[in-house]
Amino acid sequence: MFLIGSGIKANAQKLKFLIPDEAIVQYAGSIGYFSVGAGYEIFGNKRGNLAFHYGYVPENKGGELNIATVKLSYKPWVVKLKEWGTLYPFNPGFFASYTFHKDLSLFFPSGQYPNDYYYWSEAIRPHLSFSTELELKPPKALTNVGVRALGLYIETNTNDFYLINYLQNMKTLTIDDIFQLGLGLRVKF
């Protein structure tokens, strides 16, 4: 019995990396009207982030959409704000989103258009993003239940389609036409 118990404990320790380091909620920002996610700190210095989101757009906000997103970002600069917080002023990132919808497919149907007429996917969008995050020390009530920090962030992003259209139509589009904005909260464990 001891061997079985120690074997289970050893396997649980090996799978510990699957437990997220943070829970995330985000409003807007190209990944849904509202999204929820889980994130992982991926570098030893805790400046890299890998996050997985599920986003939803309701029917009355532009058509019902379900969106899955994978985000990768890095925090190159850190500004300590006394003992109560930390500011990460400029965090570049990349993310890819997939929109689940009956009218959007991974590839355009063959035979409908000449080969290479459309060079992008209808459902997948790669994005470049930039964010600013304010990480706050949580109240004692939250630290007692395992919350290490709260992160409030604002993120702007653009995707391949918007960027190409901007470069081809610079006389008509402005740079703010191609960027989207999102606001979010990270609960860090």
Rank of each mutant, 00 (worst) to 15 (best):
Y33F: 15
S121I: 00
R186H: 14
I19K: 15
G63C: 00
G29W: 00
T158A: 06
Y56A: 03
K171H: 09
P20M: 07
K75T: 01
L50F: 10
H101E: 14
L18M: 15
K9H: 13
Y40D: 00
L3K: 13
T86E: 08
I164H: 14
K171F: 10
I154A: 15
G29N: 06
A123S: 12
K16W: 07
E59H: 11
E133S: 08
L50Y: 01
E155F: 03
I175G: 09
H101I: 00
F107C: 09
G37C: 10
T172F: 11
T174W: 07
L104T: 04
L152R: 09
Y33P: 04
L173F: 14
T86N: 04
N49P: 00
A149I: 02
Y166A: 06
K16I: 05
Q180C: 05
I175M: 11
L163E: 08
F189L: 14
Q112S: 12
T172L: 15
L50N: 00
V25P: 07
Q112H: 14
G32M: 00
L183P: 07
S73I: 02
I154W: 03
Y88M: 02
I8C: 02
N11R: 13
G182F: 04
L150N: 06
L134W: 00
K9N: 14
I124K: 05
Y117M: 10
A23K: 10
Y119L: 15
Y33C: 03
Y162P: 02
K71T: 12
G151S: 13
N60G: 04
P92Q: 05
A10H: 12
K46Q: 11
A28G: 05
F34K: 09
Q112N: 11
G63R: 02
N144Y: 10
L183R: 04
F189C: 08
A149E: 10
G44H: 10
I4G: 06
Q112D: 14
G44A: 14
K61E: 14
Q13M: 11
S6N: 13
V147W: 04
K82V: 13
V187Q: 09
A149Y: 09
P58L: 01
Y118V: 02
F179I: 05
F94E: 04
G44V: 03
A38N: 03
I154Q: 10
S129A: 15
F34Q: 07
I67P: 02
D116N: 15
G146Y: 07
L65S: 07
R148Y: 04
N49V: 10
G62C: 03
V79R: 11
I124G: 03
D116T: 07
L136G: 07
V78Y: 01
L104D: 06
H101M: 03
K16H: 12
G55N: 02
G111I: 08
L106P: 02
T86Y: 01
L106D: 15
S97A: 11
